[in-house]
Design a protein around this nucleic acid. Structure first.
Lengths: 248, 248
DNA sequence: GTTATCTAGTGGTCTAGTCCACTGGTGTGG
DNA sequence: CCACACCAGTGGACTAGACCACTAGATAAC
């Protein structure tokens, strides 16, 4: 194993060591410098890089969780055969999702409003009595072709000054993070198959009753507060969701 | 925080300490003894249970990865509000998936054969020249109603004596694990929306061209070998997939 | 030639810390 | 009253091991 010899760590960097190792190994694997089946020993990595074994291990476990490597007790750690991990579903905005698929993303804001929501929505967003929310309806395009129709709800308290122009200009998640200091944590999604309504079909340029993948998502901040509830209707002929399953 | 006081560890058990802690905390959270917002400090857990902080931490991180708790640097670790984690997609057989949804699973084997597959399938299963595979076609029922139509392919080398009667009697994953010593590792899935063909619709007791959720899965062992490739067609009106997204 | 035993190397689990960045509450000074 | 400094407590990152279970290859015995 010659991994460590071409791997440089910057111990003064703000980026944690395990993260640097993880990123470097990921690059080597994706760039083909580390081939499937090749061994990456915790102990050797630790010795070569002059880090503790636990630090090396933390990096390797992150890669294992992505499916890039696999570990076998008593045998070692090895680079896995390529899989569909590049598209594995993550908490990404639409633009980034498309970028990873090699598609050019664009969006059209169909409507934007701030309003006092009905109880069901208020509960979904965990709003207090009298709190307001934003509703943003968008048509999502990829390579200039409609891809999804999306209705997004946000608690107004988390982004009180949100403007339609901002949303039209850039990624909502970036605005939340960079302008409003929101820390995105995780999200839950439900995926189901349905038939496009006439309205959805028209927007998506598909025939009425075409199959669509309906994705209902709720996004949480690192403090467990609800940041967003969104319903996306993706064209069945253009969109697939890829996920990775663990055994437990 | 009174978590540790009602939590017993068996240090002579074969089950690792961190796993025992994880399980006990999960029970307490799911049983309501630990309420949303309640704090669970690494240091206090470590002191109370007389384990190292890293051990306590490992348990807490597992729960965090499931979304049961959330951690905030400088503030602490807290029980999260309930989410849809109970149904979060995992590498489970059909029976277990249905059990978790509170449904009674059953299956009908429609066909069972051992055969020499064409190149595309051989490649998908990573078969050597001349190797054989099993093909199992099943109708999956939940509470006696059709739920999914499934075509499963397996490398014969991993379960050479597999019999139709075995598959009819029990879970394939259990057979692989308990009879053939296979260690299931992880799986990749693609989920997409489609319209049921006439044949599928008939089997599933739905109208032709009804929406179906098509799930294409490839299962890997812990040594990264392909164990199974399976295509499942789920009724769109009865089946949803729930997943959890991480930020990265 | 086959089987059993030994050994070196592996990952898994765990200990016992240390130091750093962050948070929120409290106290002090303007 | 407000702003700033301090402090105690938090999780995050990291060190430097130790011991255990498992694997595969080499060696010895039959």
């Amino acid at each position: 194993m010659t991994t460590g010899t071409s791997l440089k760590l910057d111990k003064s960097s703000f980026m944690p060591l395990y993260h640097q190792i993880e990123q470097a190994l990921r690059s080597q694997i994706e760039g083909g410098e580390l081939a499937p089946g090749q061994a990456i020993s915790e102990r050797e990595l630790s010795e070569t890089l002059k880090v503790s074994r636990m630090t090396a291990r933390q990096a390797l476990h992150a890669l294992r969780d992505e499916g890039l490597i696999y570990t076998e007790r008593g045998r070692g750690t090895f680079v896995a055969e390529p899989k569909m991990t590049v598209h594995t579903r993550q908490l990404l905005g639409f633009s980034e999702d498309m970028r990873r698929r090699g598609l050019a993303a664009a969006s059209k804001v169909l409507s934007f409003r701030r309003f006092r929501p009905e109880p069901a929505i208020a509960e979904k967003l965990r709003l207090e009595e009298g709190e307001e929310a934003f509703e943003i309806v968008r048509l999502r395009l990829a390579d200039r072709v409609p891809m999804a129709y999306e209705t997004c709800l946000l608690p107004a308290r988390r982004c009180p000054e949100l403007k339609r122009a901002e949303v039209e200009r850039g990624s909502l998640y970036q605005i939340l993070e960079q302008v409003y200091g929101v820390r995105l944590g995780q999200a839950d999604e439900i995926l189901e198959a349905a038939c496009a309504t006439a309205y959805e079909a028209q927007l998506l340029s598909i025939r009425p009753r075409s199959p669509v993948l309906v994705v209902t998502r709720r996004v949480f901040a690192t403090d467990d507060s609800v940041i967003e509830a969104v319903r996306s209707v993706y064209r069945g002929d253009r969109y697939q969701a890829t996920i990775q399953l663990k055994r437990r």
